[in-house]
Design a protein around this nucleic acid. Structure first.
Lengths: 90, 90, 90, 90
DNA sequence: GTGGTCTAGACCACT
DNA sequence: GTGGTCTAGACCACG
């Protein structure tokens, strides 16, 4: 079997690396539920990427349900939940 | 009843206007199933927006199932289908 | 808490002070027509005010026709013009 | 169809011609160290070749140490250096 | 010559 | 001082 047509290793992308790293920090408990992440500008600087890339990373975490973002307020680590439970928004 | 918390009128956004306009051109039959759209660079110029905004618009159409994009090939008007039918990829 | 005077002196507001100062820099020729102002974040830092205040100040200048702002590009010192002449955008 | 010569003359390739021409412009001082080349699309148009060919040419110059490319920023004429000296990035 | 990733900024609405 | 929209460009992988 050959590799499927492209999708050129998403793991190599900056936004994916950044999202994975943040996901790990959430999983490890370093970033706790209902606490805010640092601002996207700060995250961009911290990871040495542009604002757009940092925004791409947080969007990914949002799609994956790991964070909840509230406009003009910030992006928060999602509340822990058991599987089957609905997402609880703040 | 008051208006819900923000989401400041998506209809006003450039990418939404552009996506809606393209959707209408598809619905009207001007753009036919399985034919390619113009390239994103061309669309950006045609609509007088930046490349990023044009890309945002086509991404929206993709999410809505109106187009299918093939990397390095182009973005195609999705095949017409009856409701209930699965999406057919090229 | 004391009640404010009925019509608080607008000259006392930070945004008004800032706007006046910028207006003077334009009038003096320090800031020349068709040149961009520094970004709103930079101006806020330069004047030691919050971002909202800096924005309020530039909005005032815009209303007064001293600057023209081009979305996503920047805010420019308005071209000098005789009264009656239309605004010339860059 | 005829068989090509065993080792086709690299000097005949468009990308090699283009790379050589750019190398000469660098050597002559027309293109100065640490200044950016024109974008690959512009170069392609300027030399009347396809985008892929222009990219091939700049890649060659990169391999030869004549230019340094900074992702998403541009391709720059390499700083002049004595042999043995490390490359200095801008 | 396509879509994708990325940079480095800008202004905007809202808290 | 947040997230969101937008610009104008760059290079990259692939067909």
């Amino acid at each position: 079997m050959t590799t499927p047509p492209f999708e050129p290793d998403p793991a190599g992308y900056l936004y994916e690396q950044m999202a994975s790293h943040l996901a790990q920090r959430i999983a490890s408990g370093e970033l706790k539920p209902n606490t805010p992440l640092r601002g996207e500008r700060d995250l961009a600087e911290e990871y040495g990427v542009s604002l757009g890339t940092a925004r791409h990373a947080t969007r990914l975490l949002r799609y994956r349900g790991l964070v909840v973002t509230v406009r003009s307020k910030g992006t928060y680590v999602a509340a822990a939940r058991r599987s089957g439970e609905p997402l609880r928004h703040q």
